[in-house]
């Protein structure tokens, strides 16, 4: 999926879990930042093949954002003493597997490839639904917190 749904879902997760401090950094790194690190890796190959032409279904993904990455993210979570990286990375992968680009979930250990699930629906409609759902939830949770914050100020007064 594109930037917005990942950012909204990560924000929603941060709000629901009530994360603070370094956990927020980890949540955004594994819920969204992994995309920023992953796609530039294949940029030289893309440019060599297509130049500046657009190829919609180019395989931009590396194992950095496939389920196979859980092999290192789970031990890393144990090492850091928090499961935030594993949870938010799983959420990231879940969204990516909702859209129809080719994925190699277990490469290099298996050459199995898939186009994910919910293929009956268009990618755009899925992105819109995720954005609407996460956006509304984020607003609802945020609104609740703001109201509670104001109520606390009045209660102290």
């Amino acid at each position: 999926m594109t930037i917005i749904p990942h950012l909204l879902l990560t924000t929603l997760g941060v709000q629901i879990l009530g994360l603070e401090g370094k956990d927020i950094v980890l949540a955004y790194s594994f819920g969204y930042g992994v995309d920023l690190l992953d796609h530039p890796i294949k940029l030289p190959l893309y440019l060599k093949k297509n130049g500046r032409k657009n190829e919609k279904h180019y395989h931009w993904r590396t194992p950095l954002q496939e389920p196979v990455a859980l092999f290192w993210i789970v031990p890393l979570s144990f090492y850091l003493g928090t499961f935030v990286p594993a949870i938010f990375f799983t959420a990231h992968v879940f969204l990516d597997y909702c859209v129809s680009y080719e994925k190699r979930p277990l490469y290099p250990f298996s050459t199995y490839s898939t186009e994910g699930f919910l293929q009956k629906f268009s990618d755009t409609s899925k992105e819109v639904w995720v954005c609407v759902f996460c956006g509304v939830m984020c607003f609802a949770l945020g609104y609740h917190q703001v109201v509670q914050f104001i109520a606390n100020i009045f209660a102290r007064g």
Binding site: I41, K42, T62, L64, V68, P108
Partner: peptide, 11 residues
């Protein structure tokens, strides 16, 4: 090394 290794193979 594991992360780099998986990326290398995929690349």
């Amino acid at each position: 090394a594991f992360v780099v290794g998986t990326i290398l193979v995929d690349y």
